[in-house]
């Protein structure tokens, strides 16, 4: 598997969004019934992952967090190896030792996933320092949530990246939820984008349920990082449509708010746009969904067939 690069065709974005949705819903179904370890899904946030990652070049690096499946799949991860990792199997990206929470795939440039919320931000500064000091071309893209923006490390990271001029694109996927707490309970500010200016950092905000808008803004932000060598904060406004950690009945979510959020689901929204402009018809969309589902079923078969790691793996990889 190699890094997936995107051309200008919007169909490709939609196809990837369907793959992510199908993968996560299938994983959640497995987790609800059969003892498969749970995951933090990003259902509802597909346009953020696909929009930003479709704007990347081959050399760019990604740091993600516990809600990582969308980022990994969008960057070209094999869904079978991804699910194998979630299930703790030998053929997973991390030999089954990560499980769902810290998956990284060096071959795809998805490095150093941390699930100590905010940890990814500090690590991203270090990766950015390597890129700068070793004169590498790639920009470092760090995905985090509005929860991580409440960590002190967020502010330390923005400050250091700005002071040292590190080539990092900070992408806050503001999905309104910080585990089981609504964002409105934890911050008075409406979003996180306003926290960039005091650090002397440029920033932008975008409707995170519009994949084309996300991609366009991400391209501008990446261009700014590449040309200036300075960091940039992009806030992507979206909504977490499923619970924090599967299985999760979302009993704590206001039903009207959730219904409103589903009415803004980025997938049907993008489908409607492509249908309206004549690029896709219902049959084509149905074909896309079927292709995603069949790819995910093949992934499930692959993951289920993959053996657990040998017991010798318990103490390997501790030291270099």
């Amino acid at each position: 598997m190699s890094v997936k690069l995107y051309d200008e065709r919007p169909e490709e974005l939609l196809q990837m969004m369907h793959l992510i949705r199908a993968y996560e819903e299938r994983a959640a179904a497995l987790q609800a019934g059969s003892g498969v370890p749970g995951t933090c899904t990003s259902v509802g946030q597909e346009a953020c992952a696909v929009g930003v990652i479709a704007a990347l070049g081959a050399d760019d690096l990604i740091l993600t967090n516990h809600r990582s499946a969308g980022h990994l799949l969008a960057r070209g991860a094999d869904p079978g190896r991804l699910l194998a990792e979630v299930m703790g199997r030998r053929d997973g990206y991390c030999k089954g030792k990560s499980g769902s929470l810290h998956i990284c795939a060096r071959e795809l440039g998805v490095v150093l996933t941390s699930t100590i919320v905010g940890g990814e931000l500090g690590l991203a500064c270090g990766v950015g320092l390597s890129q700068k000091m070793l004169h590498r071309a790639g920009v470092v893209v760090c995905f985090f949530g509005d929860g991580a923006a409440c960590e002190g490390r967020f502010h330390e990271s923005l400050n250091l990246a700005a002071v040292w001029g590190l080539p990092v694109l900070f992408v806050c996927e503001n999905n309104e939820w910080q585990a089981f707490v609504h964002r409105r309970e934890t911050t008075l500010a409406d979003g996180v984008v306003s926290w960039a200016a005091p650090f002397g950092m440029d920033s932008a905000t975008v409707d995170g349920n519009d994949v084309e808008a996300v991609r366009a803004v991400a391209m501008e932000a990446l261009d700014a990082v590449r040309s200036s060598g300075k960091p940039f904060l992009l806030e992507v406004r979206t909504y977490r449509l499923r619970g924090h950690f599967e299985p999760d009945d979302q009993a704590y979510v206001d039903a009207q708010e959730l219904a409103r959020a589903w009415s803004c689901d980025p997938l049907p929204r993008f489908e409607a746009r492509l249908r309206d402009c004549g690029r896709l018809d219902d049959d084509a969309i149905a074909g896309m969904k079927a292709a995603a589902k069949s790819r995910v079923e093949a992934a499930v078969a692959y993951a289920v067939d993959s053996p657990y790691p040998g017991m010798d793996e318990l103490v390997t990889d501790v030291y270099a």
């Binding site: 690096l61 270090g126 390597s130 330390e156 400050n159």
Partner: peptide, 24 residues
Amino acid sequence: RVRNTPLAEGIIAGTAAGAAATGL
């Protein structure tokens, strides 16, 4: 190569860890 940092040990160590994993 000899860098003063902000007075913030967490980001110093986090930056060191990220840099160490990627070539420095």
